[in-house]
């Protein structure tokens, strides 16, 4: 070390530096994904595999197939397979963002160096959502074939690919769920992650229309009030799963002109809450 070359003053505009920083942030996340891809595939596939194995293979084999036997069971498969894709997208948001953030904000404070990147702090959170969304899309791509092949003889989902819906709804769902992950990761202290799973993630998954289409909930009433069908409208996963049904099957689903704007709305809501929380966690 003889003499150092030192940048005594900023050499780039805030915009140029931010653009480069965003690229660097996403590149870092994708490098980590590449390094741990085997692990990523395993954790992405295990839940869909178990769901399909139990509901579409074991249940029909032991004579308690959901939807009765024959055509009824196949009809349930058609409902379940897109639901499994939807739930995988949601879990990707929770795992790639909420859990990662719990660690990085937690005792290791690994996020520090990225937060010091020469860009606005919110952009660091946006980069997380971007790379989390990419992981969601990859998850959807590898889960769909599994969900479509793991089943007993005859319990086959009737798949019909609607490409326009696939290329628009899958990324949109991924952004919305990644943003949900950002909200969860920035709202819960690392030590309360168990609480997050119990009180947020589980209710969302079980009441998120993975095992049933929203339209079939109508019979659950108190008096004439379709209370469950109304209540679950607050659940963002409903729209993701209904969207997957529209994209991958001809099963009955919510109207697309409800699904699109509501998913966009949820994405915007979660993103704005998540970015605000993120800023609060970083600054004091």
């Amino acid at each position: 070390m003889t003499t150092l070359r030192i940048e005594a003053h900023p050499t780039r505009s805030a915009t140029a530096a931010s653009r480069a920083a965003l690229g660097g942030l996403v590149l870092r996340d994708l490098t980590v994904l590449k390094k741990t891809f085997g692990e990523f595939v395993l954790r992405t596939l295990i839940q869909p595999f178990l769901l399909c194995f139990v509901f579409l293979y074991v249940f029909p084999k032991i004579g308690q197939a959901v939807g009765g036997s024959g055509a009824g069971a196949a009809g349930f498969a058609t409902i379940l397979v897109p639901g499994v894709v939807g739930i995988s997208i949601m879990f990707q948001g929770v795992q790639s963002i909420a859990l990662a953030m719990a660690q990085e904000f937690g005792f290791t404070r690994e996020i520090e160096d990225r937060v010091q990147a020469p860009c606005p702090i919110w952009l660091v959170a946006v980069s997380k959502v971007l790379s989390g969304s990419v992981q969601g899309v990859i998850a959807a791509a590898i889960v769909f074939p599994i969900a479509a092949v793991v089943h007993a003889a005859g319990v086959t989902a009737t798949v019909n690919l609607h490409w326009l819906e696939i290329v628009t709804l899958v990324p949109l769902a991924c952004v919305a769920m990644a943003s949900l992950g950002l909200v969860l990761g920035t709202s819960f202290e690392p030590r309360n992650i168990g609480l997050m799973f119990g009180f947020v993630v589980l209710p969302i998954t079980f009441l998120g229309g993975t095992y049933y289409p929203w339209t079939h909930l109508a019979p659950v009433t108190i008096g004439h009030f379709h209370w469950l069908q109304t209540l679950v409208l607050l659940n963002p996963l409903i729209y993701v799963n209904e969207g997957m049904r529209a994209a991958f099957t001809d099963a009955p689903h919510m109207h697309l002109y409800v699904i699109y704007p509501v998913l966009v709305g949820f994405a915007a809501l979660f993103l704005s809450i998540g970015l605000r929380n993120f800023r609060r966690r970083v600054l004091s």
Binding site: A8, A14, R109, E110, D113, C119
Partner: peptide
């Protein structure tokens, strides 16, 4: 703040190295 960060280097008290890298 984003411009200031261009010309600042920071070593914190804790080990904040990226464990994934």
């Amino acid at each position: 703040p984003a411009l200031v960060k261009q010309v600042s280097g920071i070593v914190s008290q804790q080990n904040t190295l990226d464990r994934q890298l």
